[in-house]
Amino acid sequence: MMEQFLLKGAVTELIATFDKNEKLDLGMYASQCDFQMQAGIKGLFCSGLAGESLYTTQDERIEMTKVAVEKAGGKVPVVGNIAELRLCDAKTLLQRYVDAGVDAICITQPYVLGYTPDLLFRYYSELAGMTKLPVYVYNAPQTSNTLSPALVDRIVNENENVVGYKDSTQDIIHLQSVMAGIKPGKHFECVAGSDATIFPTLTIGGCGIISLISAVFPKPIIDVCEIYFRGDIAGAFEKQKEILAIRTALKGAPFLAGYKYAASLIGLELGVVRNPLSDATQKEKDAIKANLQALHLI
């Protein structure tokens, strides 16, 4: 059954690339995609929250997605993520992703304001009903609209082409409850949405990870999945502990800044963060560099 999964193993959440003037740099983005393909990553995830989707226009997101589709060349799946406040904008973006040639759609819940479970169900169902592509539910607590296990199961079970779940809750009880509520026989791909939860997600039947760490350091993320799939449970747990240390090092600066700085240390230019996000201070950069050196990553 694992061979039937579209997203299996390590999938990278691509990072938006801006030059020093905060203008989108597609050449830099293309190089990032090349780096991922050469590393052997199993999929490309476009315009996630960590891909600065809230700081880019739809036009910019589609430009980046087209580059990812071209660079993937049909060798690995490309997923287009929707993070919009208005349903009409979400519908427009979905159709533009389809036209750009993505292999699947991921839908993030609307953010900031609170929405009822019925409204969120209708939001996901109406979007899923627009396409024949596989659809994944993204549960991002940062939106202030965390989907309950019951709501995730309802969305998955009642929409035929909703086939998977990107879980960023970091809540193992939540995740077990979701897995328990999927109706028998339903094709379901549970993918970790946090590098901190790859191992526990795999142990309860998950199939992989949409990773931010792999944007800079793909090998340990690829390794933890492959080690687990080989049946070496103890080895996979040891690799997860290593990943936790990497994650701590990269989070030693404001959102994304640590990842972009770390990338520059290995010769992968991902540019600057876009305002109002802030860059890492020199003190933070020094600490990140020292920690990555101690982990033998640079």
Rank of each mutant, 00 (worst) to 15 (best):
residue 13 E to L: 11
residue 119 L to P: 05
residue 42 K to I: 09
residue 67 V to F: 03
residue 159 N to I: 05
residue 281 T to N: 11
residue 113 L to Y: 12
residue 71 K to D: 09
residue 233 I to S: 09
residue 193 G to S: 04
residue 91 K to M: 04
residue 291 N to V: 00
residue 51 G to M: 08
residue 110 P to F: 02
residue 144 S to T: 09
residue 293 Q to N: 12
residue 29 Y to M: 00
residue 83 A to S: 10
residue 211 S to H: 08
residue 55 Y to S: 15
residue 192 A to P: 15
residue 170 Q to P: 00
residue 37 M to F: 06
residue 211 S to L: 08
residue 206 G to H: 01
residue 161 N to D: 10
residue 77 P to M: 09
residue 268 L to M: 01
residue 188 F to V: 00
residue 64 M to T: 07
residue 163 V to E: 01
residue 297 L to V: 03
residue 20 K to D: 11
residue 238 E to H: 11
residue 293 Q to I: 08
residue 160 E to D: 12
residue 2 M to V: 06
residue 272 V to P: 02
residue 218 P to E: 08
residue 282 Q to F: 09
residue 165 Y to L: 14
residue 45 F to H: 04
residue 27 G to C: 06
residue 223 D to E: 12
residue 215 A to H: 02
residue 138 Y to N: 14
residue 103 D to P: 04
residue 250 L to Y: 02
residue 256 L to K: 03
residue 289 K to C: 05
residue 126 E to D: 15
residue 64 M to G: 05
residue 78 V to W: 08
residue 220 P to W: 12
residue 285 K to L: 04
residue 272 V to L: 10
residue 110 P to S: 02
residue 247 R to K: 07
residue 22 E to T: 11
residue 113 L to P: 02
residue 184 P to Q: 09
residue 220 P to A: 05
residue 115 Y to N: 10
residue 46 C to Y: 06
residue 173 I to A: 10
residue 52 E to W: 08
residue 208 G to I: 11
residue 195 D to G: 06
residue 150 A to D: 15
residue 216 V to E: 00
residue 74 G to N: 06
residue 113 L to C: 04
residue 283 K to F: 05
residue 195 D to P: 06
residue 116 T to D: 11
residue 42 K to Q: 06
residue 190 C to K: 00
residue 13 E to H: 11
residue 234 A to V: 01
residue 287 A to G: 00
residue 183 K to H: 09
residue 245 A to I: 04
residue 90 A to K: 01
residue 272 V to K: 13
residue 146 T to F: 01
residue 91 K to Q: 11
residue 206 G to N: 00
residue 189 E to Y: 08
residue 199 F to K: 03
residue 144 S to N: 14
residue 11 V to K: 00
residue 135 V to W: 09
residue 154 R to C: 07
residue 82 I to L: 15
residue 4 Q to G: 01
residue 84 E to R: 12
residue 191 V to K: 03
residue 8 K to M: 03
residue 135 V to Y: 12
residue 138 Y to A: 10
residue 146 T to A: 14
residue 87 L to I: 12
residue 66 K to R: 14
residue 12 T to G: 13
residue 98 V to S: 07
residue 4 Q to V: 02
residue 139 N to Q: 12
residue 228 Y to H: 08
residue 22 E to A: 12
residue 140 A to R: 14
residue 228 Y to S: 05
residue 236 A to P: 04
residue 285 K to R: 15
residue 232 D to H: 13
residue 35 F to I: 02
residue 294 A to S: 14
residue 180 A to E: 14
residue 203 T to A: 12
residue 52 E to M: 14
residue 81 N to D: 10
residue 130 M to W: 01
residue 229 F to N: 07
residue 79 V to K: 01
residue 128 A to K: 05
residue 81 N to L: 04
residue 65 T to W: 10
residue 296 H to P: 02
residue 238 E to Q: 09
residue 32 Q to H: 12
residue 239 K to D: 05
residue 277 L to K: 08
residue 234 A to C: 05
residue 62 I to A: 00
residue 83 A to K: 03
residue 219 K to S: 15
residue 143 T to M: 07
residue 248 T to D: 13
residue 34 D to I: 09
residue 180 A to P: 07
residue 228 Y to E: 00
residue 42 K to C: 07
residue 239 K to A: 15
residue 272 V to A: 09
residue 21 N to F: 01
residue 219 K to V: 04
residue 295 L to K: 13
residue 37 M to A: 14
residue 254 P to M: 08
residue 196 A to C: 02
residue 72 A to K: 14
residue 226 E to I: 06
residue 51 G to Q: 01
residue 119 L to I: 14
